[in-house]
């Protein structure tokens, strides 16, 4: 119990929030890493997933890429990239996180596109829609919920995984944990862990809220949500 009160008093000490090792700076680094990595990952994975899903090709690749991705430890990729590219910049961390986030994003986008009711797609084709029109006006809107679920879980996982960057000395909130760990300062470790977990849950809540607000068909979908969604498509990927 005193570990929790210790973490609380660590968090409420204002000197712990300022400076290079302070929470604000580390939080800024963490958010920077997360946002840059998510932007790059989405820019890479979404177009490929949409194209493959639209064409109905490369399904084996799109699905297996996340199985292989899961088998590769992010920590190992990070260390390999750090040795390869040097510790001077943030690029090794960003690249490792991108490699971590792209596979599940790609798989979810592909599955989302393929889950669109084929009858609807055929009807669109029968109405004389071109491939592009079908993609943008039929398939994409219908696949959107599943794609956004993929983006959300990837974002939450990236927030959590970005802490690993601290083990080899990168930035982010993980540094608070590793610093506390090497000083045997348990309250600080707890405080750092709580900060990351809260940030991850905030990101999750932000996406859930945004999805709910932006979804034009939320009333209708809620009724059918129970039976939609393929088994095993639930994006559960490795925490790290």
């Amino acid at each position: 119990m005193n570990k929790i009160t210790g973490a609380w008093s660590w968090l409420t000490t204002s000197s712990h929030w300022s400076g290079v090792d302070g929470v604000w700076n580390r939080l800024g680094e963490h958010l920077f890493l997360t946002v840059v990595c998510m932007l790059i990952s989405c820019a890479v994975a979404l177009p490929i997933g949409l194209a493959l899903g639209h064409l109905g090709k490369g399904g084996t690749l799109a699905i297996n890429v996340s199985n292989v991705g899961r088998a590769v430890p992010t920590f190992a990729v990070l260390v390999l990239l750090l040795i390869l590219l040097g510790t001077g910049s943030q690029w090794p961390t960003i690249l490792a996180l991108v490699l971590f986030a792209v596979p599940p994003l790609l798989t979810n986008t592909y599955v989302g596109m393929r889950e669109v009711d084929r009858d609807v797609v055929q009807a669109a084709r029968g109405m004389g829609m071109t491939g592009g029109q079908m993609l943008w006006r039929v398939e994409l809107p219908l696949a959107m919920p599943l794609i956004m679920t993929g983006v959300r879980s990837a974002a939450v996982q990236v927030v959590a995984t970005a802490t690993v960057a601290a083990i080899p000395g990168g930035g982010g909130l993980g540094r608070i944990i590793t610093a506390g760990f090497s000083n045997f300062d348990t309250p600080q470790v707890f405080a750092g862990a709580v900060l990351v977990a809260v940030l991850a849950l905030l990101v999750e809540a932000l996406f859930v809220g945004g999805q709910w607000l932006l979804d034009p068909a939320r009333r209708r979908r809620r009724r059918t949500a129970v039976c939609s969604g393929p088994a095993g498509a639930a994006p559960a990927d490795a925490p790290a």
């Binding site: 570990k3 690993v164 506390g180 707890f190 750092g192 990351v196 991850a200 849950l201 925490p239 790290a240």
Partner: peptide, 17 residues
């Protein structure tokens, strides 16, 4: 599900004490 969002680095560090 909440357990899943705890980063492994934090999880292991918390369990050590």
């Amino acid at each position: 599900t909440i357990l899943y969002t705890i980063p492994s680095l934090a999880m292991f560090s918390i369990l050590v004490p």
